[in-house]
Amino acid sequence: MRRTSVPVLSLALGAALTLSACGGGGDPLDAGSRSGSQDAGTSSEAAAGTGDGEVIVGSANFPENVLLAEIYAAALDDAGVEVTKRLNIGSREAYMAGLEDGSINLIPEYTGGLATFLNPEIDVTSSEEVLADAQANLPEGLQLLDISAAEDKDSLVVTGETADELGLTSIADLKGKEGDLVLGGPPEFETRPNGVDGLKEVYGLEFGEFRSLAAGSNLTVQALKNGQVDAANIFTTDPAIQENGFVVLEDPESLFAAQNVVPLISSDVVNPAVEEALNAVSAALTTENLTAMMVEVVSEGQDPAQVARAFVDGI
C-alpha cells in the first residue's frame, strides 16, 4: 500500500507540472531539431537516387504522437530519406496549419480524430468508413498512406477481477449487470453522443451512476483500480491498462469511432521510398505493441527516439 503511493504522488506532481508548463515552451515550429543522421553521406546518396529532398516530420504535443513521429523518422532515415523533426507542435488546429503552409509535411494522425476535424458532422464509426470520410475531406495536397491496426481510441475498461467475476469480454456482456455498477470517465463522456447516451442507445446500458473525473486519466485509472468506479472510459493505448491488468471490452457495435494510426503526408514529398517505408511501419504497428512502447516511454521514462529506433530495427 505504502509503496504504491510514491509513484502515484510523483505522477500527480508530474501532471501538475506539465499543466503549469503549458504555454512556456516557445514555438516548436521555429526551432526544428535536426535528426542527426550519422550516415549523412549514404542518406543523401539514396535520397538523390529516389528523387528529391527532405521530409519534415511533425507531431502533436502528447507523448504517443511524439513516439509515432520518431518511428516514422527512424523508418524514413533507414530508407535513406533525409528527415527533419519538428515535434510537440500542439493541437490538431496548430499542426494542420503547419502541414498546409509546408513547415511540416508528415505527421502521425488518427483516422477518427482527423475525420471529425475535417467533417464535424461525421456519423460513421468503422475503420473503413471513417478512413473514407477523412480521405474525402482532406485539403488539397495532403494524402493518407496505409492505415495501421493500432488504434488509440475511447474504450470501456474494467479490472481483470471484474471481467472474470461478471464474465465480460465485450461491452454487450454488461447488459443486465450494469445497474449496480459505477461508470467513471471525463465529464464530457456524460454528455457526448458516443458516451453515456451512446451506451444506452447502442447497447441498452444504463449504469447505476456516472462519476465524472476531471483530473486526467490517471485519476480515472486510480479510481478503477481502487474500486470507486467499476468501469471506466480510458484510451486503448493507456499504459495503465497493461500495468494493472485491466481488460478493454470489445466494442462489436462500433460505438467508439475508429482511430487507426495513419501517416498524413504532403503529396509533394511522397515517393516510392517514403511510401514503402511508412507503409511498412503501418503494417507492423498494433495497439498492443504501441501500448507496450508507451509503457517504456511514459512509465519507464525511456527516450522515445530510442524506443522508436528499436521498434523500426525489429520490423
Binding site: 500500500m1 504504491t4 500527480a12 501532471a15 501538475a16 485519476l219 483500480k225 481502487n226 470507486q228
Partner: peptide, 22 residues
C-alpha cells in the same frame, strides 16, 4: 487548493471505499 485536492485524492483512493475517498 487544487494541489492539495489531487494529492489527497491519490493518497486516499487506495485507503477508503466508495464516495468517502472523494
Amino acid at each position: 487548493s487544487l494541489g492539495v485536492l489531487f494529492v489527497a485524492v491519490l493518497l486516499l483512493l487506495p485507503r477508503l471505499r466508495g464516495d468517502l475517498a472523494f
